[in-house]
Structure formats: structure tokens, C-alpha cells
Computed example of a mutant assay.
Amino acid sequence: MGGRRRHGPKKLIALSWLLVEHEDDIEADLARFYPRDADQLEEFWAGRMSWRRLWVLVSRLPRDAATVIAEVGPDRAAWSTEVELLAKAVDELAAANWQFASAHRGRGPAPAPPQPIPRPFDD
């Protein structure tokens, strides 16, 4: 087939929905993360920016972007892969300490099992 890849209808629907729900956030994020001389959203509405280009910019916004925070919530937006790995490490260390304490408790009462660190998506 060759040439440029076409953007799919799912991306267009998702972008359309984001524009309806979060146009102001998108405009602020484009100005913050992709500064240019012209207002990029105005360029899009005037037909001087393609749907694909706008999708590429919006879909790659960082976690602290207003659009991402508005879409997923501030807690979930702040929960990065690094934070998840740290929480997992703490949970595993707590479990190992509990196992050690349980195995070496003697005749005393069994220690309470550790509680995992709460995740923002465990609602």
C-alpha cells in the first residue's frame, strides 16, 4: 500500500469527544507543551492542521497535562509506572517481613498480615 498511514475512525471519535468535553484544556495544553507562534487549536478549526496532527499532539500529552487530569482525575494521572513499582516493592517488603515475623514468632500471637498501599484505581 505504501505512503502515509491513515488514522482510524476510533481515533477520530476519541479526538472528537475530547474536543467536545475538554476543548479549553486541550487549548491550554497545546500552548504549554507545544508552543508555536499561532494558536494551534485555532489552526485546527481553520483547517490548517490535520486531524492526525492534532491527535498525535493530544494523545502524547504528559501526565501533568490539564487534559489528562480532567480525563482520568488527578490521583490516577499522578500514579506513574515508577510510583506503581515503588508501591509494589513496599508491598513485597511488607509481605516478606510479615512472613519472617510469622515464622519466628514463637508461641506469641500471629502478626496481622500487611495491608497493601492503596492505589487510586482500586475504587
Rank of each mutant, 00 (worst) to 15 (best):
R76T: 10
A14F: 07
A38F: 00
P116L: 04
I13C: 00
R63C: 10
Y34C: 11
A110I: 11
D64T: 08
Q99R: 14
L30R: 10
A38I: 01
L19R: 04
P9V: 03
V56E: 09
R53E: 08
W17F: 02
A14Q: 09
A103L: 15
R4T: 06
A66M: 06
L54P: 00
P113G: 03
L30N: 09
D75L: 13
P113Q: 03
L12Y: 07
L61N: 04
L57F: 12
D123P: 03
R48H: 04
A112M: 10
A14L: 11
S102W: 07
L30A: 12
W55P: 01
K10H: 05
G73M: 07
L15S: 03
I69Y: 06
R105C: 12
I13K: 00
M1L: 02
F44D: 09
E21Q: 05
K88P: 06
E42V: 08
L18G: 05
R107K: 10
L54R: 01
L57Y: 11
G73V: 06
P111R: 09
R76V: 13
A66D: 08
L15K: 05
E23P: 00
I26L: 09
G47M: 10
W55D: 06
E21C: 02
T81L: 11
L93I: 15
P118I: 12
L12F: 06
P113N: 01
K88N: 14
A78C: 08
M1P: 01
A87H: 15
V72A: 01
F100E: 15
R63D: 13
L30S: 11
A95P: 08
L12M: 09
I13D: 00
P111S: 11
L54F: 03
E43Y: 09
P9D: 02
V72T: 02
E27R: 03
D64A: 11
I69G: 05
I117S: 04
L41W: 11
E23W: 02
R76I: 12
R32E: 14
A94M: 13
S16N: 01
L57H: 07
I26M: 05
L19A: 05
L30V: 14
P114D: 10
W98P: 09
D123W: 08
W79Q: 06
R105M: 13
P116I: 05
S59T: 12
K88W: 14
A38N: 00
D25E: 15
W17H: 01
G106N: 14
S102C: 05
A77W: 03
G108T: 13
F44W: 12
R32I: 12
N97H: 05
V58M: 07
G8S: 03
K11F: 06
P118T: 09
A28C: 10
P35V: 05
A77Y: 04
G108K: 13
A112H: 10
L93N: 14
P118S: 10
